[in-house]
Structure formats: C-alpha cells, structure tokens
Design a protein around this nucleic acid. Sequence first.
DNA 1: CGTGAACATACCTGTCTGGTTATATGCCTG
DNA 2: CAGGCATATAACCAGACAGGTATGTTCACG
Lengths: 121, 121
Amino acid sequence: MWAAVGDPNRRAVLELLRVRPHTVTELVDELGLSQPGVSKHLRVLKEAGLVSARPEGARRHYRLEPEPLRELEDWLGPFRAFWNTSLDALQDHLDAQAEAPDRVPTAPEHRTESNRRKGPG
Amino acid sequence: MWAAVGDPNRRAVLELLRVRPHTVTELVDELGLSQPGVSKHLRVLKEAGLVSARPEGARRHYRLEPEPLRELEDWLGPFRAFWNTSLDALQDHLDAQAEAPDRVPTAPEHRTESNRRKGPG
DNA sequence: CGTGAACATACCTGTCTGGTTATATGCCTG
DNA sequence: CAGGCATATAACCAGACAGGTATGTTCACG
C-alpha cells in the first residue's frame, strides 16, 4: 500500500485517474514512460486495490479505486490532531512529559522553512 | 517526504514520537533495530523535517515535527472526496465522465450530502 | 586525562525496484 | 487467416536503500 503510493509516477497515475478513467496508452502518453513501465505500475496499483480495469475491446480502461487510500487517511488521522486542534495545549502536554525547556512553537498554521523553529525572541 | 514515511520502521518511529519524545536508545529498544540503523532512520526523518532533536547531555531527545505530514494530507485531500460521498454515485459519475469529460471533479474540499450535486441544477 | 555511555558516520552487502527492450497474448479489421 | 493495435509478461540492468559491523565523536564522571 505505502509502496504503491510511494512512487511519484504511481501517484501521478492516481491523480490522472482521479480526473477520469484512462487507457494504458493514454497514461503512457501523459507520463512519458514506456508502455511496459506503465503496465507494471498499473499492476502494482491494481494489486494494492487502488485501480481496477474495465476491458473494452482491446483496450482497458483503468479506473481509480479510492478505498485503499483510507489506509493512509487512517494512519494520518492521529497525526492530524497535531495541526488541526490547539497545538499549544498539545505541545504543552508533550513538553510536560518531556520537561522540555526549549518550548518550540509549533504553530497551528502553515509553517514555511523560513519561519520555522524561531528562538524565544 | 514520501520516501521518509514509506518505510515501516520510520512510520513506527513517527508513531512512537507521537506519544512522546524518545531518545535514540529508547527507539532502538522499541524497534529492535541496531542503533546505527535507528540513527539512520532518524537522519532521514530529520531531513524530511518530520523530527527534531533536542540535545540533553549525551542523549538526544527526538520529537515529532508533524508539519510536513501536511503534504500527505494535502495530497490525500482531493481523494478524500471520493470516499466521503456515496461511492456508487461517484463511480457512476466517473463512468459518466468517461464519455462526457466536461468538468473535472478535482474536489479539494469536503463534499457533504447537501453540496454534492450532479447537474448544474 | 582515562573510561564508558550515547549517538553519529563510514563502509560494505544483499535485496528491492523502477526503468528499459524484446516478446507473447488477445482483440479487431479486412 | 494475415496484419496491426493495445496490453501484459519476461528478461535484464542500474541505482537506491535498509540492514549490519566497525569506528569516530561528544558528553558525563571520577
């Protein structure tokens, strides 16, 4: 599962299939990979349950099967609390357990590389 | 980023750090890996911005830095709409779009029963 | 300053995997 | 049945990587 979405090209496939079903040739055209390469990726995605194929004559229409992505969602769930809710309270909790003197502000909003990990000012 | 969370041991580290900060030795003990192995994983996670270290004497307390996980969250976002709503309707929708790719359902926001609609109504 | 603990780095190795080319299979057309 | 198109599979190669052992580095302690 994680291996399936770990590859950038495979994620690209999922994003393309999110828009609409694609045939292999279409994906080949979009990804710029060789046809067997795409087929191999599709095989991985299929075995992960992330896509399904509907044969139509010689071609196969691959369609997104989003269910397995729930696994990522579920894994991410407990972490989401870290940026969704009041981080101060949470950080407080963590720091209390760790007796951290260096209370780093983990802002509840987006942090960029430039504003992250500021000193106590 | 995806590579960072792609590894099971690394995910285990993140899950452990989600509970509370850990020292390397603690992680070694929990994961059952060699110390250099854990250190290497921590290095990867650190470079991905997923953890940070606070030195305390000889030991280093590693703490979860959840921000970069937003990337996963963001990537997952458009897909989330696919399982929030009725999947049957969605697949129907997709099949329909296979022939009429008029609009693209790149729904980055939550779809509720009330705002989910098919036609221009 | 010597010793040991905690951690990082260097280096090596086996395995996995993503990419390719070549080939097989199946469908449609004529 | 021959031929061409769409896709899958096989065989192969190069790079990435996770794992280990050995060693370096820093800190605490006496």
